[in-house]
Design a binder for these strands. Structure first.
Length: 616
DNA sequence: GCGATCAGTT
DNA sequence: CACAACTGATCGC
């Protein structure tokens, strides 16, 4: 369950998948997919009112998401304000401050996320760097390397931050069987059952959420049948789904639902109440799609588990496994990674620590010191607990301003061309920025009653018994109140046309009094709250605290080349530029990536195509 | 009576 | 096998 608060550090005037609280002030909205936990505040009356008075604020999403959204009458008022975007088509969007008129341009590209119909990741490219917001995603190993828009020519784009679906970023979830394997297991089970007689029927016990549709269509193809569902309305404009579902109850595969469907099933009835026409009783089995996972060394891969005389669980995951996430991140090597979910039994600190290993420029021990954060503890704790401005103080432990200046310098050295570029500079502020969330976490622990889960890094078979509700949530770190203009120091705006944009994440006015104490040991045992997470440390790059010579500020950084891709020839480039100049659509993927890749990986390509088609 | 939130359930 | 969403209780407006 996502606990992302809605905003990204780099582009704080856009809100994604959250529409309440601070997000009411956003200049553009993005919806990654149509699941309720990503739509918080989306039907709020305040937001509705804001839209009525705005000329520029819009909601951007995929065409499918728009369709699913507007299908629900509660969100119908968005009709005039939704801007659907094609996948993999970079689109420039103006972020406009309607009060001052200042504007900033960003380019957004939707990438298929494989989570549910219409689900996308958002790649933002602008003068505060490239950032990828994954939404929820299920991508297989190697998928990132196949996404053209994550590349610039033969290289991976320089990604500043990834805002990550970290649902299963935990070694316990090392391996989740692939879609294909799960589908095969489910198909076999169903085939063996419904083949016995027309009275043998299957009830797919699916949750009321989008995401099972590819199951329906594949089973529909496999068995030449339609699947019974409660309603077709949401799919009325999606023929490739619509043709596989039906409201006719006389089918052997059901995915219909009823508020008390479990007790229906106990009474040998389907949720739709269907029984055989001649009165003879149906033979029903239930199959409940559930996430199953296996450790790194586990060999068992049974994707079907029998849970009763006629009940089964079948492996099914909406989210990438640990190894899939690791593959994704190690390919992109972003400077920062921000988790949007803290897996059960983990703390945010655990996840942040583990994610740091996936960030670019892994610091070695030398040159790093441990910085105490405990000094902020009491002052924070003494604040009025309901102070609405307290949220933004969660960022306060460090003065990042000088480093940000450095980052801007680095960014100015970026001069990308559409197809080739110089190697990205080293982002010298990396370790500090990576540490932001950890410092925020520390402060969270400092000022709240938190459970501070015990460390448990051992994988497999460990039951997480932590109280998730007490674990720190992502949203607690990104709910900063805008600073007033008098407080604001606009230190790192590089492309805004005006200079008075409130900097939501500025730390410059919140320097801890004892910041010089970088070499102090962590004083973690000041509180008698036994539940606190006491041994957190923040790794800082000592060298980053001093001015670096300009020559060191942008050394080369090697990013892995796209597998099986090639640089375009001069003639191809010329053609591309001509097409671009004449406003024609340019599909670089076909030229540079897919062609060679298809030749070498015919089967994988097929499954990729299938998946792409599915999630569009 | 509506909406938000939380705990519990599947 | 921990998803995502529903249900019901409670609270505030």
């Amino acid at each position: 369950m996502s606990s992302f608060a809605g905003r990204m550090k780099e582009y704080p005037t856009v809100s994604l998948d959250r529409f309440d609280r601070e997000n009411l002030h956003a200049q553009a909205y993005f919806l990654s997919h149509c699941h309720k936990d990503h739509m918080k505040g989306l039907k709020g009356p305040l937001l509705k009112r804001k839209l009525q008075f705005s000329r520029t604020v819009r909601l951007y999403c995929s065409f499918v998401t728009k369709e699913l959204l507007l299908n629900n009458p509660k969100y119908a008022f968005w009709e005039e304000y939704v801007v659907p975007l094609e996948l993999e088509s970079p689109t420039q969007i103006s972020l406009v401050d309607e009060a001052s008129g200042e504007r900033e341009e960003i380019v957004v590209t939707l990438l298929p996320a494989g989570h549910c119909p219409g689900s996308v990741m958002f790649l933002f490219e602008g003068c505060h760097g490239n950032v990828l917001y994954t939404g929820d995603f299920r991508l297989a190993v190697g998928d990132a390397s196949r996404m053209e828009h994550l590349h610039s020519g033969s290289r991976v784009k320089d990604i500043q931050s990834v805002y990550l679906d970290s649902t299963f970023y935990d070694p316990r979830f090392y391996q989740i069987p692939s879609r294909e394997v799960c589908l095969k297991g489910i198909s076999e089970l169903i085939g063996n059952w419904i083949g016995q007689s027309p009275y043998h029927v299957v009830w797919l016990n699916c949750k009321a959420a989008y995401g099972y549709e590819y199951l329906f269509t594949n089973l529909g193809d496999e068995f030449g049948t339609q699947i019974h569902v409660n309603s077709l309305a949401m799919f009325k404009k999606m023929p490739e789904i619509l043709s596989y579902v039906t409201t006719d109850r006389t089918t052997q595969i059901h995915a219909c639902r009823h508020p008390r469907d479990e007790e229906f099933f106990q009474g040998n009835r389907l949720p739709c109440g269907c029984s055989a026409t001649d009165g003879s009783p149906l033979r029903i089995i239930s199959i409940k799609p559930s996430t199953m996972w296996f450790g790194e060394r586990t060999k068992k891969t049974n994707v079907i588990i029998k849970t009763g005389s006629s009940s089964y669980r079948a492996c099914f995951s909406f989210h990438s496994s640990y190894s899939e996430i690791k593959d994704f991140l190690s390919y992109l090597q972003p400077v920062n990674i921000f988790p949007s979910v803290v897996p059960i039994g983990r703390s945010l600190t655990d996840v942040t620590q583990m994610l740091r290993l996936m960030c670019r420029n892994q610091p070695d021990e030398a040159g790093f010191v441990y910085k105490p954060l405990g000094v902020l503890k009491r002052s924070r704790a003494q604040r009025p607990s309901d102070d609405s401005s307290s949220d933004d103080e969660l960022f306060d432990s460090l003065d990042l301003a000088p480093l940000r200046k450095k980052l801007i310098l680095n960014q100015e050295t970026h001069s990308e061309t559409p197809v080739e570029r110089t190697a990205p500079p080293v982002a010298t502020s990396l370790p500090l920025l990576v540490s932001d969330s950890t410092s925020a976490a520390q402060n969270y622990f400092d000022c709240t009653e938190s459970n501070g889960e015990d460390e448990d890094d051992e994988e497999e078979e460990e039951e997480g018994k932590g109280d998730v509700s007490k674990a720190p949530k992502w949203e607690d770190f990104f709910t900063a109140e805008p600073l007033s203009d008098s407080q604001n120091s606009q230190s790192h705006s590089c492309c805004s046309t005006a200079s008075q944009t409130p900097d939501l994440f500025s730390d410059s006015d919140r320097i801890p009094e004892n910041l010089d104490a970088f070499s102090l040991t962590l004083s973690a045992s000041q509180s008698n709250q036994s539940s606190q997470n006491l041994d957190d440390t923040l790794i800082l790059a000592q060298s980053e605290l001093e001015e670096l010579p300009a020559s060191q500020a942008s050394s080369d950084f090697d990013v892995p080349p796209t597998p099986e891709s090639k640089a375009p020839q001069a003639g191809e480039l010329l053609q591309l530029y001509r097409k671009l100049a004449s406003g024609q659509e340019v599909v670089i993927r076909d030229v540079l990536l897919v062609e060679t890749w298809r030749n070498q990986n015919p089967q994988t390509e097929q499954s990729w195509k299938r998946q792409q088609a599915w999630w569009r």
